[in-house]
Each structure stands twice: as C-alpha cells, then as structure tokens.
C-alpha cells in the first residue's frame, strides 16, 4: 500500500509542478480544493478504519473460511460472493485467500466470485459510497455487481 501511495504521490506532485508552471493561480486553487475535500473526508476515513479494526478483531478468518467448505456447488458459489462482499481488506489479499480456499477444497468458481466480489462489492464501505454518490446509486451498483460476480464465477468454471 505504501508503494501504491508513493506512485500516486510522485504522479500528483509532477502534475502540480506542471500546473504551477502553467498557471500559479489555478495551481493554488487546486490545492485549496484538494484541502477542502480532504477535510470533509477525514471523519469518514477515521470511522471506516476504526470499524475495519473492530471487524478484524472480532471476525476471525477461520469463521469466513468455514462458510466456503460447502459440498453444494451453488451454495459455495453464493457463499464465495457473500464472503467477498462482506470481508474487507486490501485487494491484494484476495488472491492468497482465494488460493487457500481452492487448496482446502473450495470450488474454483466460488473462489473467482469471491475475488470479484471482494474487489468491487463492499457492504462495509457501502455507507461511504452512499455518502459520496447517494444511496440509490450505491445500493443498485452493489446489488448488480454482486450478481455479476456470481455469473463471472460460474463462467470461469466453464472456461478453466
């Protein structure tokens, strides 16, 4: 995550330098707008990370893991999508976790649904998404993306 941060920081700094050279006034305005957005996001970010901490402490990975041990393929597909939707963590972590699911006998389509759902459906980040875009968009987007994740998982079962 720090590397990603540094990549962004370098990129944005270069863009600001170019901006300030072209038009110092507009450069200053950009900084002001950036500060304003950051300021408004701070309470929300503090809350989200505090909640992630609680989640990690009180919902252990083993608990999530047992959900996918289902014999029924369709049920494990649904569970894969659900676990991905509820779990939070860096996107990178989805791959080793999915691979451990497959190693312990999970159906590969369930693991695929898990990854897609992990990255693009967020039940925990739903309040943030709704705060930014409004509830209507946030709810529809997450519901439709969830079903897309299940379909993608199923199709992978046919392709791989």
């Amino acid at each position: 995550m720090i590397t990603t941060g540094l990549i962004y920081l370098t990129l944005v700094t270069v863009l600001y330098l170019i901006g300030f050279r072209k038009d110092p006034e507009k450069g200053r305005q950009s900084l002001l707008a950036a500060r304003q957005t950051l300021w408004r996001m701070i309470p929300l970010l503090l809350a989200i990370f505090a909640l992630i901490g609680l989640f990690q402490e009180f919902v252990p990975p083993e608990m999530i893991h047992t959900w996918l041990g289902s014999e029924n393929h369709l049920l494990s597909l649904l569970n894969g999508g659900l676990v991905g939707a509820i779990a939070i963590g860096p996107p990178v972590a989805a791959f080793p976790i999915a691979s451990s699911f497959i190693d312990t006998g999970a159906w590969p389509p369930a693991a695929a649904a898990f990854i897609v759902s992990w990255v693009s459906v967020g039940v925990v980040s739903l309040p943030v998404e709704a705060h930014v875009f409004g509830w209507r968009f946030a709810l529809w987007r997450n519901i439709i993306t969830f079903f897309a994740a299940l379909l993608i998982g199923l199709l992978i079962g046919g392709l791989v």
């Binding site: 941060g5 962004y8 950036a34």
Partner: peptide, 21 residues
Amino acid sequence: GSNMLLSVVILVVSVMGLVGL
C-alpha cells in the same frame, strides 16, 4: 485500525490532490 490508516495516509492525501487538480 490505526496501523492500516497510517499505511494509507500518503495515498489518501495524494488522491485528494488529484481531486483538486
């Protein structure tokens, strides 16, 4: 929670910079 927040501080500040631009 705070460890994770610290690990993304640079990222958050940079992206807000991008929003301003």
